[in-house]
Design a protein around this nucleic acid. Structure first.
Lengths: 263, 263
DNA sequence: ATGGAGGGTTGACCCAGCGTCAAGGTCAAG
DNA sequence: CTTGACCTTGACGCTGGGTCAACCCTCCAT
């Protein structure tokens, strides 16, 4: 007759594991001696070894139960199913690995390559790092929101950058984004922006963009929070009958100055 | 400004996950509105997306923290280390798979092929299934106890089976193992056994066997528990100056009937 | 008989990464 | 005013045990 530690030693497991198997019902609780110690026989050793063999083979404890009591057919079936799970888990980890590799290669977190290229183009235009970070954060959100559209959206952005006015616009953003009211650049930026907007409207490029209204509002509020100058530019443009930032719209004349957009 | 569920939706995570990230300090707790609701801004969306990106890539949350705040070099280093962990985990699962495959192929739990073959040979001799199970359980314990010796032990057993007396011995075990006192086969078995023992002693095959005493006692007690006839056979053999079962020994004449082995 | 060593016992907290109630407060709309 | 959707904190569950804590039992030497 064996004590729990002897049993555990014979089966090559820890005492704690044996008690755990008792608790989950894998190994029946044996008799106790008069002092309360569990006393085991060889049958327990055998059962415990079989449990260990299955558990070491990757069988979840919950399934060890069924497999131990199963006939050869159910046993084979169960083993196959467990192998299927293992294969799936391995594939999952391999997917994870390749994602991790892409992530390390791209070196820009949560951004597809096309966006990284676009940001590099902005850098090439002399745009300051602080503005780049603002853009980057916006693109992170856009990429998360509409991952299937991101490449086409970026393509359109590249086309827009072929317009000299757009290049001129970005050339304003070389320093820190802390413009104050009265900065002469603000009106200049508004002028350039208005020209761009007019051209966009004429080209019929204004309309459904695939984003929902809330998301557009979120993007706008981010810009306004991060760049104080943006608010001033927006104010000028609103006087001239434009509203929006992420998504530009012509405001009908009769609504001007009567219904302000929620800030 | 966003509620927690809007934030979660933008980042593609669950509300519960967001709160979890707050608890573990990955995402700073934002301001609350007057009713206690958390209110988020776009910066939180961006940070949450970056957290998700890393977490989805298999980075443990504890490490996401460092990676988010790390420069490009530490980032690359951290990613490499995580990849190493992933590779190790994949290899572990693959090992598990092959073990599982061997287990399914062997179809006999916790037994090496050599033992399965040996049991098949016994079956071929007409030994009953119940006895086979007794043998099998004993071999499970032996294989667990001395896995490195199991093949040589089995080889010796095969040699023993070349002895016609051993075949004769096993030929007794074709039915149920519930022999009662008075069964004439008991004496016959004892006779055969004694002849085998004598020959083993003469061949010098008795002695150190690589098992410890406790283990031998355990094996003996199993046999005695499972097969009532074994006890009777043992009694006869003890009268004739033998002791042990798993490990046979000549008892010196002066100890006969004075010191019985503990049952 | 007594003290210490070295077993044993139950119970409870710990790890990751949340899912899932529970029990109640808030908000917007009809 | 009610309803239903959403928010809050808190706590338990899952896997497979590891690691104390606090106390009991047995054996051996003194």
């Amino acid at each position: 007759m064996l004590t729990i530690s002897q049993l555990a030693a014979y089966a090559g497991v820890t005492v704690r594991a044996v008690r755990h198997y008792h608790k989950v019902g894998l190994l029946p609780e044996p008799e106790r001696d008069r002092s309360g110690y569990r006393i085991y026989n060889a049958a327990a050793v055998v059962r415990l070894i079989r449990i260990r063999t299955l558990a070491d083979a990757g069988v979840p404890l919950a399934r060890v139960q069924e497999l131990l009591d199963a006939g050869p057919e159910e046993f084979a079936g169960g083993v196959q199913e467990i192998d299927k799970d293992l294969r799936a888990e391995i594939r999952r980890l391999q997917d994870t690995r390749s994602r991790l590799a892409r992530l390390a290669a791209g070196e820009h977190l949560a951004l597809p390559q096309s966006v990284v290229d676009y940001l590099d183009r902005l850098r090439g235009l002399g745009v300051g790092e602080r503005y780049i970070e603002l853009e980057r954060d916006a693109w992170i959100m856009i990429a998360a929101q509409v991952p299937h559209l991101i490449d086409s959206v970026i393509a359109r952005k590249h086309e827009e950058l072929d317009d000299p006015d757009m290049v001129r616009l970005y050339s304003f953003f070389t320093g820190e984004p802390d413009w104050r009211a009265g900065d002469p650049r603000i009106v200049e930026v508004a002028d350039v922006l208005e020209r761009l907007m007019i051209r966009a409207v004429e080209a019929g490029e204004v309309g459904a963009d695939g984003f929902d209204d809330q998301f557009v509002a979120l993007m706008d509020s981010t810009m306004l929070e991060s760049a104080p100058g943006a608010e001033l530019v927006l104010a000028i443009l609103e006087e001239r009958g434009w509203s929006g930032w992420t998504r530009i719209e012509r405001v009908p004349a009769d609504r001007l100055n009567t219904e302000l957009p929620p800030s």
